[in-house]
Design a protein around this nucleic acid. Structure first.
Lengths: 240, 240
DNA sequence: ACAAAAGTGTTAGAAATACACCCATGA
DNA sequence: TCATGGGTGTATTTCTAACACTTTTGT
């Protein structure tokens, strides 16, 4: 009755990780996969695939992520549904796009090869479909959300120095931040607390290690976090 | 090949308008439609319908809006894609949900009757599917976005007094705002300008009429806003 | 004149910003 | 000792909230 024939429903994911660029400074990178069939044969594209009837949208995103890149992101959130009639030359294709953040150590798990490669987010080639547009939008979301939420910690492990946390912000926002003011903003926000440990070995005063408190004050948690399924919203997943 | 059988793709829209509540004060209302078939026969639900193969997602939302309520909203933005496996007891149903704002005079165009009715946003009955959750999320988005964007103008006509604009904010945010400070915030933001006209007839000093300057786009068209024009996104305009 | 809402002025406190300067370590 | 980044102190500016006060109309 409501069966939709000729209309494909897919998911794709924009995966962000911080890696060193040519100058050695950390910047935003993402893995892309080379298409092995038409349309856009041999063009680079976002990892993704069709949604199966028995899996949720986020589930489909996670499955495709694992199958193509072996990644299990610490942060995964829906970005937007793209459904223009002409966005695929082949058939009508609606894509639910997610965006993900992974830690550097996770990023190393990506199976590199002829068909999977990392690209600097601001030096992308011409991608398949409308994927350049999608990445631009995801980058805008990443940078916007970095300013008012605490997603930065999705790029880090459970313990980190304030310098490491600040470098995440600086890499994503592409501007230097005052270490003194950054420290105070983080301390007064109450989202981090010192573990009591310090890191020795540097040729300078040993920095303290911090952890996230989980005292969630996420302004944008929204009703989705209280979903009946018990599924925690990606935003909150790391807060425990 | 990629044909999806048994997976329905629908659009629904949460339509917000300001109407007087029991006390006469303006508050947020939305129109719902009564379902005329299973599942959820006779339950109230968001207006919506299936996406046709030859129409965009937003186009499908606008078409369904017109067919069920005769509304042509001034503001329409994608909210979220809901796709849990069990959200419809019938078949697998993925819904792309939009949210819309309409002016009071537009709201009057809604064809009321046995199967279409306005409800106060905070006094909803048990709705069909997961529509209570969806409305909660849309309300959260409305209130959040009211604080940092200029969507309030979508509830008003081309000319308005500062008191009218303030009442929109107060109705949505459900808290009183200082008229003096509100005036200054609006004036310094540069998004409104006086028309030179005043409104006479009140038993008090005639208020000036203002218009929106157009310095910032009303609709957040998502990634599409910079596709053709290369325009800066509204939210980023003040950060440079 | 009075009530009511429009509109202006002023001040206190909070928050962001800039930057001087001390601290603790490795070499 | 010096270089290096970690960390603290503090003055300046900017933003926000609170509220006293003046203006202009209708009755």
């Amino acid at each position: 009755m409501t069966t939709t024939i000729g209309l494909g429903l897919a998911v794709s994911t924009v995966i962000f990780a911080l890696r060193a660029d040519a100058t050695g400074a950390p910047s935003v990178w993402l893995p892309l996969v080379r298409r092995t069939r038409d349309p856009y044969l041999d063009r680079w594209a976002l990892p993704g695939g069709m949604v199966r009837v028995d899996e949720s949208l986020e589930g489909a995103a996670r499955r495709n992520l694992g199958e193509t890149t072996r990644l299990e992101p610490t942060y995964l959130e829906q970005l937007y549904a793209f459904g223009d009639v002409d966005r695929s030359p082949d058939q009508r294709l609606v894509s639910i796009v997610y965006w993900a953040l992974v830690r550097p150590d996770e990023a190393e798990r990506v199976t590199l090869g002829e068909n999977v490669r990392w690209f600097a987010a601001d030096e992308l080639p011409d991608l398949a479909f409308d994927h350049n547009l999608i990445v631009d939008y995801a980058l805008w979301r990443l940078r916007t959300k970095m300013e008012y939420s605490r997603i930065a910690h999705a790029f880090l492990g459970p313990r980190f120095t304030l310098a490491e946390l600040r470098e995440v912000y600086e890499a994503v926002l592409r501007k230097p931040l005052d270490p003194a003011n950054f420290r105070r903003q983080m301390e007064t926000s109450g989202v981090i607390e010192p573990t009591g440990e310090v890191v020795t070995g540097g040729r300078h005063r040993p920095p303290r290690l911090y952890r996230y408190t989980g005292a969630v004050d996420l302004v944008d948690a929204g009703p989705l976090s209280r979903r009946a399924t018990g599924a925690v919203r990606p935003d909150l997943r790391n807060s425990a």
